[in-house]
Simulated assay, not measured.
Amino acid sequence: MRRKDPEYQPAVEAAAAILRRQARRGKPLTYGDLSAEPAKQGFDSVPPHRGVMTYLLKDVCLHGNEDGRAPMLSAIVVNKASRRPSEQFSVLARSAPFSRPADWTWQDEQRDVFARYGEE
């Protein structure tokens, strides 16, 4: 799957729904587990590392959050071994429109995601 493919935007929406559901459970999801989920819903596979996964997670964070103020849903997506988001997540968080402050941590963002979506 590529960003310009017609199924890309529906895949973003599906991934956002998957992450909101996982956030309601209050638990992180690995990149590998997230990679497998769209295929279960009939979308092309999304490899768990680099490439389209990077764009997918950015677009999930922007989905319904164009000004970047809401918690970034992808904060709950973690590496299986380290149990932390990739370094690309921190780069994204510090870029516009998210522009998280210097004292920000991914743990803060993850707590905010769980707090926001756990209430739904």
Rank of each mutant, 00 (worst) to 15 (best):
R3D: 03
R3E: 12
R3S: 07
K4G: 12
K4T: 13
Y8T: 10
Y8C: 10
Q9G: 00
Q9N: 08
P10H: 09
P10I: 12
P10A: 12
P10Y: 07
A11W: 00
V12E: 08
V12R: 06
V12F: 05
A14W: 04
A15S: 15
A16K: 13
A16W: 02
A17Y: 01
A17L: 08
A17F: 01
I18M: 08
I18K: 07
R21G: 05
Q22A: 12
Q22M: 05
Q22T: 10
A23S: 06
R24M: 10
R25G: 01
G26N: 09
K27L: 14
P28G: 02
L29Y: 00
L29C: 04
T30H: 00
Y31Q: 06
G32Q: 12
G32F: 01
D33P: 01
D33L: 04
D33C: 00
L34T: 04
S35T: 02
A36T: 03
A36E: 11
E37H: 11
P38R: 11
K40W: 02
Q41R: 15
Q41F: 11
F43E: 06
F43V: 07
F43T: 08
F43P: 08
S45Y: 07
S45Q: 09
V46Y: 02
P47K: 05
R50S: 06
G51V: 02
G51K: 03
G51D: 06
G51N: 06
M53N: 03
Y55S: 10
L56V: 05
L57M: 06
V60T: 07
C61L: 00
H63C: 05
G64Y: 03
E66C: 00
D67S: 11
G68H: 04
R69P: 00
R69M: 05
R69C: 01
R69T: 12
A70N: 07
A70R: 11
S74K: 03
A75F: 02
A75Q: 04
I76R: 02
I76C: 00
V77K: 03
V77Y: 01
K80E: 15
A81D: 14
S82K: 15
R83Y: 03
R83L: 13
P85S: 13
P85R: 12
E87R: 14
Q88V: 13
S90D: 15
S90M: 14
S90R: 14
V91F: 13
V91K: 15
V91N: 12
V91C: 01
V91S: 13
V91L: 14
V91M: 13
L92E: 12
A93V: 10
A93M: 12
A96K: 15
A96I: 08
P97S: 13
P97Q: 13
P97D: 13
F98P: 07
S99K: 14
S99F: 00
R100V: 09
R100T: 10
D103F: 03
W104Q: 14
W104G: 14
T105R: 08
T105E: 06
W106A: 15
W106S: 15
Q107Y: 06
Q107W: 02
E109I: 08
R111W: 05
D112M: 06
D112A: 15
V113I: 07
V113E: 04
F114T: 04
R116W: 01
Y117R: 02
E120G: 15
E120P: 05
